[in-house]
């Protein structure tokens, strides 16, 4: 065991030294143990997913789930995603669909939230408070309650089995509007906007060249929230898509689960497990890369006011 004191991290510089609390010896060890136990609980399913993506069908059921067994079949399982299940490479079609819905919908939600948040934060116009209240009331409407109504409208408007049916509602993000309004109010100085107006800059130019660059950290958080929301969305695509080739991963994997169980076609299970792993990896990777945007005060700003 090293006795070197842990160096204070940059962001923890202002922390009150632990010894000031006058705690009994071993407190840190005790709490670190508790945190480790919860970390094990958190990582256990992920570990299960990684371990079992290497097993063949028999070992997936017969061997102990939290340890490796038998022949290393990861690449075989992985390659099965490319063929023979629901047509050639349909899994990667689903992966592509998911990424497409998440990125396009997320960018749309971010753009609309940025515009509306800026409009609500920096302008006083007739009815602005009423409109903002309406947008915030939308926060209360549960997604589950809106999904079936959307389906009914789509049935009339011909948006069933249309990618627009997935993309268009995804751009409505009341949380994003709220976050952006809070963020703009806190980080875009009104004096700067007024100065630009005096210099004769148009409103669109002020927004694009002055406000927008200052809004980037807030935009990133809204974008991430929107991407995760769409990537994980299950109910809406489940209801509006009946064509296999339009499914996102969530619906596709749900279908595989159902089929593997109900049809007794157990050979689908290894593909299901490795498919789950490939679904999880991009988002977890994205998170680890951009996690500083989750650490900022923005999420707090979103809920503390």
């Amino acid at each position: 065991m090293s006795t070197t004191p842990v160096r204070g991290r940059r962001r923890d510089d202002d922390m009150i030294p632990v010894k000031l609390y006058g705690l009994p010896r071993g407190t840190v060890t005790f709490f670190t143990t508790l945190a480790t136990l919860f970390a094990i609980f958190t990582l256990l399913p992920i570990a299960w997913l990684v371990i079992n993506s290497t097993k063949n069908q028999a070992n997936l059921f017969e061997s102990f789930g939290f340890w490796f067994a038998g022949p290393f079949e990861f690449f075989h399982n992985f390659s099965s995603l490319f063929h023979n299940l629901d047509g050639d490479g349909v899994y990667f079609q689903w992966l592509g669909n998911t990424a497409f819905y998440a990125v396009v919908g997320g960018l749309g939600a971010t753009a609309l939230s940025a515009l509306a948040g800026y409009g609500f934060a920096c302008f006083d116009f007739r009815g602005s408070r009423a409109l903002f209240s309406l947008a915030m009331a939308a926060l209360l409407v549960p997604i589950t309650a809106i999904t079936l109504p959307l389906y009914l409208v789509y049935a009339k408007a011909g948006l069933i089995n249309s990618i627009w049916g997935m993309l268009l509602p995804s751009v409505v993000s009341p949380v994003g509007v709220y976050l952006m309004r809070t963020y703009v109010a806190a980080s875009v100085p009104r004096e700067l906007i007024d100065a630009a107006r005096i210099d004769g800059a148009g409103e669109v130019r002020i927004f694009l060249t002055i406000a927008l660059p200052l809004m980037v950290p807030g935009l990133m958080t809204v974008l991430l929230l929107a991407i995760v929301g769409i990537w994980n969305n299950y109910f809406l695509p489940l209801l509006i898509f009946s064509q296999n080739k339009l499914y996102p991963l969530t619906v596709g994997l749900g279908l595989w689960t159902q089929r593997a169980q109900n049809s007794g076609d157990a050979s689908m299970f290894p593909a299901l497990v490795v498919g789950g792993l490939v679904t999880v990896v991009p988002l977890v990777g994205l998170f680890l890369m951009v996690q500083r945007y989750w650490r900022g005060g923005l999420l707090l700003g979103s809920i503390a006011n």
Binding site: F38, A39, T42, L43, P45, I46, L49, V228, W231, N232, Y234, L249, T250, L253, G254, G276, T279, V280, L283, V284, L286, F287, Q291, W294
Partner: peptide, 11 residues
């Protein structure tokens, strides 16, 4: 602790 947030509920 934050990792499960990135895991779709289906998975």
């Amino acid at each position: 602790f934050f990792i499960p947030f990135a895991v779709p509920a289906v998975v």
